[in-house]
Amino acid sequence: MNDQQENKKVVWLASYPKSGATWTQGIIRRAGIHYGVPQGDFDVYKLIKSGGNPPTSKTIKSEIIEERCAILKTHRAWNGERILHSEIPFEMAAFVHIIRNPLDMLLSYINFTRIQYKNQPTNSRFQRKLFMEFMGFEKPLTLDVWLDMDLENIPKKNLDCALKNFTKNNLQVPSLNLVGGNWLEFNLSWMKAAKKFPSVMIRYEDCIHSPSAYSALTEIFKFSEENILDAAKYIEKARKEKSSDQDKQVFYNKMSSYYYLDFFSSDFIGNFLQKYQKEIELLGYPDLPTTK
């Protein structure tokens, strides 16, 4: 354990991959810019890889913690302990649980695989698991073909195949299971954590509908609701600006809610909901639609 890390505290931004943590990070950084919120990346995995120490600040409400505290983003399911990542042994002071409905998350993941593929263009195992085993293509697609193929151009039968496998395999998706477990395990674990630590849950869909949903952050952070709304306007303006960065275009593609209805067949959506309705209701989605 690094001496500088001993007895330090952290507020986690906990989300399953492709569920809105990066957007939430941007809101917190901007809303807290005059409150000392660190302006770097909150990604714990990058921090672990670099071997650095998390920056800390006194931006958390004093009734939660009075000393300086780190703010970090994780995709790991809660392990039942105060320390989540042994590589950075900060004790949890509080957390923000960001959740997104699993069907939109699945589409966002499929979209994100273009960046994953570009970062590992010769990984034949990744190609086989994604294209053949998960999405039902007869053979892996080339990198150039996949980079040019947005969601609207993927055959519906292959998207339905992905949903069928997602349903059959307990909401696991290739590569993400190694990071956060499956969607259910991850989100249920943080619901359990909410019984032990100060926390707020934020639904991605609510924030898309109205940035005021982020006002729940004021239960943990010192900044105001007005700061949050100003930050949301700033982030939205920045997102809409045209960028030559293809990865950013992929990363922020389809910032909308319940768009799965445009891509999956209603029968496959119905089968999914029939199997997981109880768990999904428990996690805050009692009325996911099957048709537009």
Rank of each mutant, 00 (worst) to 15 (best):
163 L>C: 07
277 Q>S: 15
209 H>E: 14
49 K>T: 07
84 L>E: 01
238 A>K: 15
18 K>F: 06
94 A>Y: 03
281 E>R: 10
21 A>T: 15
43 D>Y: 01
164 K>T: 09
56 T>C: 10
120 Q>G: 08
9 K>A: 12
279 E>Q: 12
163 L>N: 00
17 P>S: 05
257 S>Q: 12
139 K>T: 13
111 N>L: 03
246 Q>A: 11
36 G>E: 08
224 S>H: 08
266 S>A: 14
34 H>P: 00
139 K>Y: 13
24 T>V: 11
141 L>R: 09
266 S>G: 02
70 A>K: 04
252 Y>E: 04
6 E>R: 11
77 A>F: 10
45 Y>N: 14
161 C>Q: 12
12 W>T: 01
178 L>I: 06
190 W>M: 00
77 A>M: 08
274 Q>K: 14
196 K>C: 10
255 M>G: 13
150 D>Q: 14
45 Y>T: 12
73 K>C: 04
25 Q>M: 06
68 R>A: 15
244 S>C: 10
107 L>H: 06
33 I>P: 00
232 A>H: 10
49 K>I: 05
53 N>R: 03
12 W>D: 05
108 S>V: 03
212 S>R: 15
170 N>L: 11
247 D>N: 15
102 P>I: 01
101 N>I: 03
89 P>D: 13
167 T>E: 01
251 F>I: 14
40 G>T: 09
32 G>T: 04
200 V>W: 02
167 T>L: 02
180 G>C: 03
27 I>N: 01
219 E>L: 08
132 M>V: 15
152 E>V: 10
104 D>M: 06
14 A>Q: 02
232 A>P: 05
184 L>K: 10
118 K>D: 05
50 S>R: 11
119 N>F: 13
86 S>P: 09
11 V>M: 04
128 R>N: 13
100 R>S: 00
7 N>P: 01
97 H>V: 01
19 S>N: 02
192 K>W: 06
227 N>S: 08
247 D>L: 07
257 S>M: 10
35 Y>K: 11
25 Q>R: 07
70 A>F: 03
274 Q>V: 09
228 I>M: 05
16 Y>P: 04
10 V>F: 09
232 A>L: 04
67 E>K: 14
45 Y>D: 15
159 L>S: 04
121 P>R: 01
129 K>R: 12
50 S>N: 13
119 N>A: 08
276 Y>W: 15
210 S>E: 10
14 A>F: 06
66 E>V: 06
45 Y>M: 12
233 K>A: 14
233 K>Q: 11
162 A>N: 00
192 K>Q: 11
24 T>D: 03
51 G>T: 08
135 M>V: 01
109 Y>N: 05
170 N>H: 10
205 E>S: 01
199 S>Y: 05
240 K>L: 09
75 H>L: 08
176 L>C: 10
127 Q>W: 05
245 D>C: 11
251 F>C: 11
130 L>R: 07
271 N>S: 12
195 K>I: 10
180 G>T: 02
99 I>W: 00
62 S>I: 11
131 F>S: 01
175 S>C: 15
137 F>I: 03
43 D>N: 14
147 L>C: 12
287 D>W: 06
36 G>H: 08
281 E>F: 07
131 F>L: 04
16 Y>G: 02
225 E>F: 02
74 T>W: 02
203 R>Y: 12
244 S>L: 13
106 L>I: 07
131 F>M: 04
116 Q>D: 13
